[in-house]
Amino acid sequence: MFLQVVFILSALLTVVSAVMVVFTRHIMYAAVYLLGSLIGVAGLYLTLGADTLAATQLLVYVGGILIIMIFAIMLTGGQDFMKNSRKSFLQVPFMGNVKTYVFGGLAALVMGSIGTKLIMNVADRFSEHSEMLSYQSTIEVIGEALVTDHVLVFEISSVLLLGALIGAATIARPIKKQ
């Protein structure tokens, strides 16, 4: 009951925010809608019983990536960027006329229904295994798996992060005046 309410709310938040990311005209709003989508995905993780992942999602995406993105938006022109750019999103020409849109829409509908049918098949095939696991905390299991089975990936990702840190600091260094 609770889980279903959480699921509906998270799914709505995720999908609506993702669609708004596409249709908003302001790059800053896109970042804020991305925040909604990320929080929605964190809620979906919760309904799937992945509490560690939900917390990590909040910590890394909201606390780190999103703030860095907004920083980048502000450092590269800020709010007036979309309005004053000579080739803004508003000036992108429509890629077709009524005929192409009708044709494209029908094709998308057909493709979508085929895709849904395929997904339904997959879901049906596994429906006999789909009884819920009991929700339990995953953090101990994940912690053990990270340092036993997946220790190589763990180490490699640490090297990757170190490389990203040094690389970003090197690339974004201000240009020296000669």
Binding site: A55, L58, L59, V62, I67
Partner: peptide, 8 residues
């Protein structure tokens, strides 16, 4: 984890 994440 949750607290640090949500307080960001």
């Amino acid at each position: 984890f949750y607290a640090v994440g949500i307080s960001s």
